[in-house]
């Protein structure tokens, strides 16, 4: 939808049917609706307004008056993709969720998609055959923190990160001393089982996929930035300029394209 608006604006003379976000007056980025009156805003616009209002009052605000019609609303509905949507409740602590960046969002989105082409990109077999898991990965800590933050949408996840890191390190140690015998395949199975078991109390249904994603990241041997780039590419999303977003927008399988392109509304 955001694209359609942009096209309108660029195309014929700025026409009257161009319908901008009432707050930024630009095309909608990440459509968000208030839950009572259904007025539409950019997600970031309506959330920053709600935070601004909350900061002006000493008491916690339970609702937000719609900037357009003054109806009391209790949540912002966003991320509608036909199958699901997300909700931002207006009565939460104002500082909450600030940590949740675009990168978190993309990581979380990955879990809503089938593990696809990206799994062909890196040579996972080789990772196990050459026992590369014996070498520590210095980016793993940061990567894990972001991954877990994205999945459980909490900022302070250090305890879980340490727990998972501990499991991975002890797995490496065990194999180093040669106490555990087995083919690369059995090691692989063992690793994934250990990690998903360790993660299950926190991530529940996503624990298995989480283990696969860790494996994938480790096999890549890349730092986080490079890895994200490759991952986004394989999803058909470029983190680069908005010119490509035209093609992407026609692929309905990829929600949230607009999180990745820079503000292309440069007119």
């Amino acid at each position: 939808m955001a694209m359609a608006n942009k096209k309108d604006e660029e195309g014929s003379s700025p026409s009257n049917d161009f319908d901008p976000c009432p707050i930024c007056l630009g095309p909608f980025r990440d459509d968000a609706y208030l839950d009572r009156c259904f007025h539409k805003f950019c997600y970031s616009c309506i959330v920053s307004w709600s935070k601004f209002v909350a900061n002006q009052h000493s008491q916690r605000q339970l609702s937000l008056k719609c900037p357009l019609c003054k109806t009391d609303n209790f949540s912002v509905v966003y991320g509608c993709n036909g199958d699901s949507f997300e909700r931002y409740y207006l009565n939460q602590e104002s500082s909450e969720k600030n940590f949740f960046s675009r990168d978190h969002k993309y990581r979380l989105r990955c879990y809503y998609r089938e593990p696809g082409a990206i799994y062909e990109k890196f040579n996972i077999q080789q990772y196990w055959r050459f026992s590369r898991y014996l070498q520590p990965n210095k980016w793993l800590h940061l990567w894990l923190r972001r991954e877990i933050q994205a999945l459980i949408q909490e900022e302070d996840v250090e305890i879980i990160v340490h727990h998972i890191l501990g499991v991975i390190e002890s797995f490496a140690k065990m194999n180093e001393t040669g106490r555990s015998k087995g083919t690369p395949e059995t090691k692989r199975e063992e690793f994934k089982k250990l990690v998903s078991d360790a993660a299950r109390p926190f991530l529940v249904g996503r624990a298995d996929r989480f283990a696969s994603e860790i494996e994938l990241f480790l096999s890549s041997g890349m730092n986080i930035e490079a890895y994200d780039k490759v991952y986004l590419q394989s999803l058909g999303i470029s983190s680069g300029d908005g010119a490509e977003s035209n093609i992407q927008d026609q692929t309905p399988a990829v929600p949230y394209l607009h999180f990745f392109d820079n503000d292309s509304d440069t007119d």
């Binding site: 009432p22 707050i23 007056l25 616009c45 307004w49 008056k65 900037p67 357009l68 003054k70």
Partner: peptide
């Protein structure tokens, strides 16, 4: 003042 809304221009 108090009744400001960001939808005003």
């Amino acid at each position: 003042k108090t009744a400001w809304s960001p939808a005003w221009t």
